[in-house]
Design a protein around this nucleic acid. Structure first.
Lengths: 306, 306
DNA sequence: CGTTCTTACGTGTGTCGTAACGATC
DNA sequence: GATCGTTACGACACACGTAAGAACG
């Protein structure tokens, strides 16, 4: 068995089973990829692909299993190469970070700035996606680090580091009656139209569960993946916003906020990477910087764990 | 990078850094292995080996890291090949089981017999070792499955399946005063010389801790790795024996036993295998049979979990 | 001086690329 | 008929083996 063959297999899958496209991305001719695939099937003695005539359309059950292990093979090989690169030049390379909008917009900027200052030659890439995608990309070794609140902890293929906990704030325009209330209860929120995150994002799951558990039904008129959109529609008076507290911004002078962390469970944001992945010096440093930033943020937005 | 190079690296380590021996085990000449190692070092741009002149004596820090990832690379490749073999002939292959004496002698026999009956063509190998060795061997992919009570759960590189819990029994000859006691307490045991397992084996760790926690000091006159030796010296009246209850044997007519599970913590025996390892049909079946055997053993020696 | 690792060099296997074929949309 | 996957064949690269050289015990 050869590593090239496994690379061809994985590239083929990532190219939607187009042999020509896979070949192009690997800088070889189609026939080479074709030979790799054939040899692999011959050696394993099993069909790996569902074929429609000559076209490849998908993986067989065995193909799925092989592909999964091939991914982990190539991930280990990548780690070995990363060790080498780290040794030759520990200040040069690329850092592929995956995160949600909330992280990219409100949490990461100081960290990115710091890492760029320390490692100016490292190319930092921010890949935005849904938590589900972030898990997928990290699992497929398309990302080095994934940062978000949901889904990361569930994957057994990822190692995750809990970073900070956060909770929610209510936002409205200044003249809203809720702002004047002495203490805000859960059913107060149900009396107004709400604008908050879509399912699968930024703690929306436990947000909904909190209401359900209390026998309440919130009236969510609009949900969005990112906080800026929520703010926009709060300004349009479509409803009151429930957002993650770290997304409060001192620049938003027209918006009033109230902490509602007594109503909802705390959420934990984590950094995750592929099990067993070798972390290059600057990757480890990024994680440390992220944790430092959290520890230094003493304004009640990001909360240290314990 | 080539898989052959990584194989040479690992073989070299497993052969105590003898290039010639590694080459012999890989059925190639020395120069080939030498070239593999050189290419690997060239490609990674780092010395992997500590050299004494031309002799290789050990790994550098980088070498250690590379070797660790190389092991996991080769383990994934082995999984892929196992998938292939499982597809071609799921009834043929080898099953390398690692366990301690206690398992091999008192727990495994019916399971081995059953698996051999179902898969007569599968070559079952029992490798006996200390729990520490069993972890090591499983981690290095020299074993398919490791079975024991200690150490397995601590390794983050192994997946473990809790199988059953067990506790201890006291054994003496028939005329011993302890046997007549209505209820046996911990300090009763301290009044007689004890014979039990050596450290690192069969729950010896928590055995000692139990006494320490109670402020007692047991008088262990002899410790051994396997129960048969303990029984032998109990017969010689060297002391009373504390053994795992599953090692009680109806054939031992001269030996009397008393259950002392109220005095010691319960131990959990587990099966472990390398993270992400593909389990061949018969390997999975072996695990199932093991669990079935435990579930069927209703004589108070093996206890189901929960 | 035997053993062991390294380097040099020739041979053969095997991989890639060109190109013709076959199949699908 | 254009695109895409497969097969055939030739050229070149490269891994292995032989053999000579270097360094240790």
């Amino acid at each position: 068995m050869e590593l090239r063959q496994l690379q061809s297999l994985i590239k083929l899958i990532d190219c939607d089973f187009s042999v020509s496209k896979a070949a192009e991305e690997m800088f070889v001719v189609q026939s080479a990829v074709c030979q790799h695939l054939k040899k692999l099937e011959d050696e394993l003695g099993a069909d790996l692909f569902v074929r429609k005539g000559k076209r490849l359309t998908g993986l067989t059950a065995i193909g799925e299993q092989v592909a999964s292990h091939a991914r982990s093979t190539l991930a280990s090989v990548n780690s070995i190469q990363a060790i080498g690169r780290d040794h030759i030049n520990r200040n040069d390379g690329s850092l592929r970070i995956g995160c949600t909008h909330t992280q990219a917009r409100y949490v990461l900027p100081p960290v990115i700035k710091a890492i760029n200052h320390i490692y100016p030659k490292v190319e930092v890439q921010i890949h935005q996606g849904t938590p589900k995608q972030l898990v997928q990309w990290a699992t497929n070794d398309e990302l080095d680090l994934s940062i978000c609140t949901e889904a990361l902890a569930e994957s057994s293929q990822l190692t995750n580091i809990p970073c900070y906990k956060w909770n929610r704030s209510l936002i409205t325009l200044a003249d809203h009656p809720l702002i004047e209330l002495e203490s805000i209860a859960l059913d107060d929120l149900c009396r107004y139209p709400l604008v908050t995150y879509v399912h699968g994002f930024t703690g929306r799951g436990s947000f909904s569960q909190t209401f359900t558990a209390a026998g309440l039904e919130p009236h969510v008129v609009l949900s969005a993946a990112d906080t800026d959109i929520i703010k926009t529609y709060v300004r349009e008076r479509m409803g009151i916003g429930i957002i993650a507290s770290m997304a409060l911004d001192f620049g938003d002078d027209d918006i009033c906020s109230r902490d509602v962390s007594h109503l909802f469970p705390w959420e934990i944001t984590r950094i995750a990477y592929l099990n067993g992945k070798y972390l290059r010096q600057y990757e480890q440093r990024f994680i440390d910087l992220f944790l430092d930033t959290v520890a230094a943020a003493e304004d009640g937005k990001l909360h240290r764990l314990q």
